[in-house]
Design a protein around this nucleic acid. Sequence first.
RNA 1: GGAGAGAUGGCAGAGUGGUCGAAUGCGGCGGUCUCGAAAACCGUUGUUCGCCUUCCGGCGAACCGGGGGUUCGAAUCCCCCUCUCUCCGCCA
Length: 423
Amino acid sequence: MLQINIIRDNPQEIIKRLSVKNFDAKELVEKIISLDAQRRETQKKLDDNLSEANSIAKEIGVLFKSGKTTEANALKEKTTVLKISAKELSESLQITEKELNETLVLLPNLPHPSIPKGKGADDNLIVSEEGDIPMLGENSIAHWDLALKYGIIDFETGVKITGAGFPIYKGKGAKLQRALINFFLDNATEKGYAECQPPFVVNADSAYGTGQLPDKEGQMYFVSADNLYLIPTAEVPITNIYRDVILKAGDLPVKNTAYSACFRREAGSYGKDVRGLNRLHQFDKVEIVQVVHPEKSYEVLEEMKDYVAGLLRKLELPFRVLKLCGGDMSFASAWTYDLEVYSAAQQKWLEVSSVSNFETFQSNRLKLRFREGDGKPQLAHTLNGSALALPRIVAALLENNQTPGGIKIPKALIPYTGFEIIN
RNA sequence: GGAGAGAUGGCAGAGUGGUCGAAUGCGGCGGUCUCGAAAACCGUUGUUCGCCUUCCGGCGAACCGGGGGUUCGAAUCCCCCUCUCUCCGCCA
């Protein structure tokens, strides 16, 4: 959520910058400015009203104490009018505030000035590309066939017990999952991220805090008996640790990492790139999150992007880094890098990580602040990134490393799998 | 699931209708003392919104789990909700 004072002070600038995200903010901004003015006017009236009522109440107290009951009762009548208008004003204030807030959350985050406009994925900038695209032989097959061939992922049984998008990993497939999770967590920990295990379900306040609500309600599984949401990413619980928290400047940067299963309904995406592991309803992911000083956030964004790139390098996967254009960026992000690995049998790039700087967009909703010395609390910047999402990594590992003798495990992973080949 | 207890400032913990944003202690910050530190002593110490102010700041409003009510006046009384704890039952 954008800060109201920024909108108030630079409405034209806001509209201009949001147009980079192909978002026409003109009407919303105008509405916000008018609601804001209305809110302040009503608040002033209400405060004056209450102030008067308070001082009369005090007078009455003093009069009663000194036994001047008649005078006190006379004053009571004066408050009747005040009470009625106070009630009206406070109701009107509540309505205005609610409407203002509901409008405010409809505005996406401002893209960083360096973000190019663009229609969609085709307009993203390729920042770097690295690693050799494997030249597979004639007989190379896609990962869903490899999974079947080696008996390591069972899509069919997953359909039986739950539905499409919930595969069962078996044998070396299951072991590979566990190995990747540990590999990612160990790397993150080494890099200074504190590991934690968050809840996999969250309440509405948390989902709202990181921006899943109200924007992406349809993407989350909802447990109606308890009003809880299954997390679409560990970002939600991890970032919400700091909801309503005022940190000391010395506590920054806060670096956390967590493994979690991630649940996504992926409503409306059927039939498109959903084969095999490409898009699942439940998948595993290790997430990294940082809470940083505003002056440091872009430095940290680079550092996080480089860290994720380093993981892909260790896994010996060919990858490229994209800087997303305005049209492809998420609602809450100010700057996003996507990292994609090349999956050689499918012959396509698969997104395995998204590293974003949200600046104060999340912290404003979360009321995540920090204090420098005796200064006033100010909003921190939040960033997060996948490091990494497993299924597409597995897809690329299977496809790229297939040989007539089986699938080779990259060197860095062997200490974690305990085997060198899947055959 | 059943029964009971509770929710107050960073923490602990008073406060059951009238200058209570809230005693006291601890912690934090500043100072005195000291070569320095500890101890001791003195002072200070929340957040949000609005109005005013060039800075410092000033004034007003709100906040004692959340929402509603009674009252001239609510942390304090009433109602609803949420959460936590204890005991019993069940159970990984």
